[in-house]
């Protein structure tokens, strides 16, 4: 088994007085797609935000690409190669597609890496190519979702944290997201996906962790999760 790219252990996080995450831990290897499954409020988003340093009160060990990032600042974490695509997309609506990409761009970390350029991204997201000079606010919901991912790729991340890409969008866009993620995986980027939509997660993920009330309740392959009806009943489905 190769060394983990991202290793989280003993992670605790708080919002004000509320304790949200309890000694949470998981690992992601290079090039792997890992799904964090769980219902709303289970702590999936908080986990991703804690890793990015966007939650002020957190304790525990977070190691990424060999560096300890448990006390690092958000922008340093991003520069190490950890990309974050938030649930509500948060694209810059006043900036054009190209300018949005510019904000995300960071120099390559090593010479061997193939860097993402707007042109290369437009091959992956053909819709964005046509809209390159349009401001973000005038893109459709699906295009905004794509732009949010593309913008993060401009930082040449080794790992992307993707927060509920299927939430609140039409099924046909979820479809397109799945195709995009499969293509993305082939470029060698590792992905942590926070999801509630099991069919979607099944299409794209290698392994899964189930989170409930801020704790990991299951870890295994996606296949094991799909096959375990009790588990699905208890934490995911009706």
């Amino acid at each position: 088994m190769s060394e983990a790219l991202l290793a989280v252990s003993g992670l605790n996080a708080y919002y004000g007085a509320a304790h949200i995450l309890f000694d949470l831990g998981f690992e992601v290897r290079a090039g792997e797609v890992v799904a964090l499954m769980g219902r709303n409020g289970a702590g999936k988003s908080t986990t991703l935000k804690s890793i990015m340093g966007l939650i002020e009160r957190r304790t525990g060990a977070i190691a990424f690409a060999g560096a300890d990032i448990s006390h690092a600042r958000t922008y340093d974490i991003a520069r190490l190669g950890l990309g974050f695509v938030p649930e509500d997309r948060r694209i810059f609506t006043d900036l054009t597609v190209l300018e949005n990409l510019e904000v995300g761009s960071q120099p390559a970390r090593d010479r061997t890496q193939q860097v993402w350029t707007p042109e290369r991204l437009f091959e992956l997201f053909p819709n964005l190519a046509e809209a390159r000079h349009r401001v973000g606010g005038r893109l459709s919901g699906g295009e905004q979702q794509m732009l949010s991912v593309a913008r993060t790729l401009m930082g040449n991340p080794l790992l992307i944290l993707l927060d509920e890409p299927s939430e609140g969008v039409a099924p046909i866009i979820v479809d397109a997201m799945a195709d995009m993620m499969i293509a993305l995986k082939q470029t060698g980027v590792a992905i942590v996906l926070s999801e509630q939509n099991l069919p979607f997660a099944e299409l794209v993920s290698d392994r899964a962790y189930v989170i409930e009330k801020g704790e990991v309740r299951f870890s295994g392959t996606m296949h094991e999760l799909s096959g375990n009806e009790d588990l699905r009943r208890a934490y995911l489905e009706v």
């Binding site: 099924p171 046909i172 866009i173 979820v174 479809d175 069919p199």
Partner: peptide, 12 residues
């Protein structure tokens, strides 16, 4: 325009 392939919609 809406459902797409249906593969990402809950089956049951």
């Amino acid at each position: 325009v809406y459902f797409g392939s249906g593969r990402t919609v809950a089956r049951r």
